[in-house]
Nucleic acid binder design. Sequence first.
DNA 1: AATATAAGCAACCGCATGGTG
DNA 2: TCACCATGCGGTTGCTTATAT
Length: 422
Amino acid sequence: MVAHFGGSSPSGSPSSSSASGRRDGESVVNKQTALKKGPWTRAEDAILVEYIKVHGEGNWNAVQRNTSLNRCGKSCRLRWINHLRPNLKKGSFSPQEERPILHLHSQLGNKWARMATHLPGRTDNEIKNYWNTRLKRRIRQGLPLYPNDIAGPHRPQPASSPVQQDRAAVRGRSISHPLPSQSNPTLGPSALSPQSYSHLKTATTFSYSTVPLLSPSGGLAGPYSPTILSPTPIQNRCRDHIYPEATASSFPGFPASSFQFSPSLSFSVNNSSLQLPELPSNQIMPSHVQDPMTEHETRQNTGSTIALLDDLLGQAQALTSNKNLPEQVNHFHHHPGARMVIKNEVREEDRDLARLLQSIPPAGLDGLINDIGYNHDTQQPHLDLDGVANEDNSLGLDIQQLALLFQADPASCPWTSMPKIF
DNA sequence: AATATAAGCAACCGCATGGTG
DNA sequence: TCACCATGCGGTTGCTTATAT
């Protein structure tokens, strides 16, 4: 078979000497004008590895200038990052790796690079490919993604989309949010047909953490507002269609008409690492429905819990801008009883953890956080909460403890019976 | 065995960001 | 302040292989 890569650019597989040879010859002539594309050959790999051995990573464009490689800097970087650098894991993802991916995606969305920092030896590209493959599979299996009223490539767009309503709501306008029932034909769970998939290719990630929370009065949920919050339309759809089996009665301890839909409460402890909550993996919505807020808007709208942690992270960044700064202990600005150990470098992992904590009702955090940090040995964030910390500084909360914290009945905690979405 | 479809994967592209002169 | 450059990220494409019909 003659393979063609990138349209008109012929190239062979790495073992195809004829194709690559012809291409190589061509590249020598056109070195100033046409850089080689397509699969890398072993010879090219060897050149790149040897160069990096001597000069180290970075300055990728210099590779092409200083070697016989006729690849652009971006291509060299990509090849090194994804295939040639040491300690890369190869092969399919293990179940131990898959679960964190699901959890991370539920918290971070399509932040592949960020996710990769939590999965040693794995690249963002691998994670992205894994996720996209899985997403396609689940869609093909017809699992519910969103309701019929918004599905389909040719449906007329409503005059006021749910997102617009959400946006209006977070700007303080009072909008009623009738809870859709399972029997509501327009909002009932729908199975997405494979034919609908092409439409979804434009969909982007939708994360619970971006959903604005409304107080019962319709205003924003502040950091110390009651934890019982009115769900927005988007949250309603999450509850009714991503967890279609769950009904209001599945959430004991919360009024049926007003609760914060936050499955993120379902922490558990396993193998001394922070287990992120089990969340649906298919958190996507069609592009004409979802309208993800900017990070700034998200912070503004969800307020608040995150503000506390951002406050701390801001302090950490300020403090750690001095590389020689010794490890310091700071006090929570809003939580005098809590303390945070600030290491000597600012870590994205901390920000990830902060995002995770964003999903915890503010009152649940109040006075609880004792220590927050990141364990580089285990590559896991750790969080000490007063009275519930484990010996190894991992998160010491199990689902029953959390249920108690948030005054739900642990014996009938709904998240333990949530259907798995993978 | 031939064909169709799905899955897995590698690589490219466009864009955003940050540093520097 | 601006332009330029290097780098990094996420989306997308298209090829190869595996599996189903």
